[in-house]
Design a binder for these strands. Structure first.
Lengths: 129, 129, 129, 129
DNA sequence: GTGGTCTAGACCACG
DNA sequence: GTGGTCTAGACCACA
């Protein structure tokens, strides 16, 4: 379980941990029902406070990506998640802003769709393999 | 100059102001070289402290979306911005994460590309009219 | 951490703080990865508001001299910085003007180069020791 | 009399005007005893307020670069200026900081001295021609 | 305890 | 009138 963290980032560490785990799940590096490292070992591995990892796991549980099991610890929840969830709605709003920034930065619609398609495939393929 | 703010959001106010302005520019509601309200009047309009607005304007100046003219205040910078800017690079990383969340939330690639295309058009059309 | 400030100067205090820190790093008084005092303690030490120190730290972060680590506060960034950075480009423009003033003030090219060489050595030596 | 101004710069406009004139003198584009445009015409030419140009001329007079003559307006003062003037002392302090920034930005001593030498020559040659 | 954010109020340089 | 700077005091998220 290798997480790519930047302690100098503006993003909080616990948010970075969440994001890395979400990407790991999407890429298939973490399978459904697979257990994540314990809060304690994860914290030691990446060199952060125990509470920080704990906060990440709980946040992902709230989002529906993880289940917290007393015996197995944090496990990847069954996916795909149900329709109409908050994450998806929030993501759509984020997308509106993201596209505005890309557009103003001079990115063409074609480039954006190509990149999106490529990124989607990188998840699609691995997840179903 | 109407900004859609949510004071209960977990997003900071100054970030929301930035985001709203970016979208306004992309939508063509703010034209190139157009002056924004002064920090004081904007602050009064939306009911926040002038320092908060000031921070937003300066952040957008750093991103290259605004210029701070000593005579005319904040004005919309000339676009499209030059290639290789930080905003675009950061947006691409954000996109990777955003797509991961959408994918895991059960959104299909087609739906994502359709939505993206629609959002892009909403900017493309108005901006060049 | 002693900073040489002049509250009567026409230079803003936060700029003076920035400049003093830059010189301290160049002189080797601040080593790479070394933590700076917290904004609060620094502010108390030099007798200014904590926001003023905070502004300095953030400005130096933008320039690439400091990193803001969410655990250790402000730390000296790894150097030397990458080529093509803005600071260097801006410095070259400043140099053009500075030399014009020195030249018109009657300073000879030899004196200027000698002084520059001496200043450069004062950094070079200490930094690599 | 063409001045290169940036209204979006952090530098105040009157400072930019001063700097441009100093460089023009050093480059020999403005000769000793040569008259500068009147405050009024200069202001109109570069599109700024009359007071702004006036402030620049007066600042340069304080520095010793210009003389204000009732009949001929602002004229370039006799150079080189006397030793021990404030401008030179201030420039030396500026140089210390400038070199610190260049050094930390990865510029080598040789490159710095070469650039300085080249800039000095660009003044030296033209001024005595 | 740390920085991040926000508010409130003030003075000043600039234009 | 504009933004820039500084002060003072407060709350909060993060680690």
């Amino acid at each position: 379980m290798i997480l790519n963290l930047d302690f100098n980032s503006d993003k909080s560490i616990y948010t970075q941990i969440c994001d890395e785990i979400v990407k790991a799940i999407a890429k298939g590096n973490l399978k459904i029902d697979e257990s994540l490292p314990s809060v304690r070992s994860m914290a030691e591995t990446i060199g952060v406070n125990l509470h920080t990892v704990n906060k990440s796991y709980n946040a992902l549980k709230e989002e529906g990506f993880l289940n917290i099991d007393r015996r197995k610890g944090a496990v990847v929840a069954t996916l795909p998640m149900k329709e109409g969830n908050e994450t998806l709605e929030k993501s759509k709003l984020d997308l509106e802003l993201l596209i505005a920034r890309c557009y103003l930065s001079g990115m063409s619609k074609e480039d954006f769709l190509d990149l999106s398609s490529k990124l989607f495939d990188s998840y699609e393929v691995k997840y179903h393999e």
